[in-house]
Design a protein around this nucleic acid. Structure first.
Lengths: 221, 221
DNA sequence: ATCATAAATAACTATTTAGTTATTTCAAGA
DNA sequence: TCTTGAAATAACTAAATAGTTATTTATGAT
């Protein structure tokens, strides 16, 4: 069956359409479950074009993954929490993380899929190594500013904090579907989402702050 | 090529071998990536037997998932934290969760895979609904005991706490592979694992305890 | 012992799937 | 305007894959 509408020649847009379709399909079906033909159909592109621009399914997957990561890190860096007071910076970072995951569910799906494969494909990607170096530094700076201000507890490990911070949001959202069954409760209503974000901020605040600072905050409330 | 070794007739052991092989394959490859032929080969069973005992690939997957969940809940219930003092009960529960995830990586992989599919298959499983009801009750009891003892903060939501508790362990372990790339640090050495468990306990303790209790604990240390 | 039944084996098939070969068409630079 | 190289289309293929049909074989009850 010949295609009714022929495409004008536009390699950039073609590539973008393939990437968008592939992102959706890989996020939904995983690497093994994704179908090249489905991607081509969604992108409204001849399958041959995917092979032309990306070589094969695996490379396309890797490219999708790289793109997703680099967009996330770019958005995060744009936050510029450096100048906020420590507690507010922490809160802003958590809100950003939560909202980004919420608004970009395909990002967390892709990361989960990649972890299923033990990050085999991300390891092949030299491009990503650079991106992630300095945001550990940013957290270290934030923590030491907080300690200096007398509000954070000393000797906290930035990586542990970062993983906790991400994990509290990530796990709730990725595991929302089994979660709703297991906990017998709707987890994604507006109220539930707001309650969760507040709770996460509360957990991290309590984990990082000096107990004395917490008492002051409680009195103030 | 005829199979060199013929199997004695033992339907139970055959089913168990198929389940074990399927668990490994689904955990490693996801639902879409898993191959029925690989499962049969690993189980050292004719592929026909899988269809004989389980009907089809999807049902086998669902059975594997149900089994994994029910084993986990059984192990958890066997903990019997009801009689421990609140803080100790909390600590034991966190240690159990951490160690269970660590020792049963296929469980968390299966749960992640199932969530990729929006829990479509678990929803079809009436068997699981029952299992999960009373462990929210157990956490509610634990929290109220802690409040009564003056050690926990009041008005905490048991479900939020349970999700936080699971999430801190789950996310670290499922995302260990991308995590090692992103944070440029080994996350699974004995020391790293111990450090993480301690950190998680610290986070939850600080989140749940009254600041005054934290000060007392700090002085005591 | 033998017979009925379920367990196990062997061989096959219709589809699906990733990837290719071959051809046509457009658009920009000479 | 003509030519050339890349963009797009069309049609194909070999391998993989879930699921079947047909047959043989062991075992426990009679």
């Amino acid at each position: 069956m010949p295609q009714s509408k022929k495409h004008l020649r536009d390699p950039d847009k073609t590539k973008i359409r393939i990437m968008a379709a592939a992102t959706a399909e890989f996020a939904k079906m995983g690497l093994g479950g994704a179908r090249v033909d489905v991607i081509a159909a969604r992108a409204k592109v001849q399958k041959r074009m995917m092979y032309h621009y990306f070589g094969n399914k695996e490379t396309l997957y890797r490219t999708v993954l790289e793109e997703a990561y680099s967009k996330f890190r770019a958005a995060e860096a744009a936050l510029e929490i450096e100048n906020d007071p420590p507690l507010q910076a922490l809160k802003r970072l958590m809100e950003f993380t939560w909202n980004y995951y919420l608004e970009n569910p395909e990002f967390i799906s892709l990361v989960s899929t990649e972890n299923l494969h033990k990050a085999k494909y991300l390891k092949k990607s030299p491009r990503l190594e650079l991106l992630n170096k300095d945001f550990v530094k940013r957290m270290e700076l934030l923590l030491s500013r907080g300690v200096k201000a007398g509000v954070f507890r000393p000797h906290l490990d930035a990586v542990q904090v970062l993983i906790a911070l991400a994990g509290l949001a990530y796990h709730y959202l990725t595991n929302q579907h089994t979660g709703e069954i297991v906990y017998g409760r709707s987890l994604m209503t507006i109220e539930a989402r707001q309650a969760r974000l507040s709770f996460n901020i509360e957990v991290i605040t309590h984990a990082l702050c000096q107990p004395e600072a917490l008492i002051v905050m409680r009195e103030a409330a």
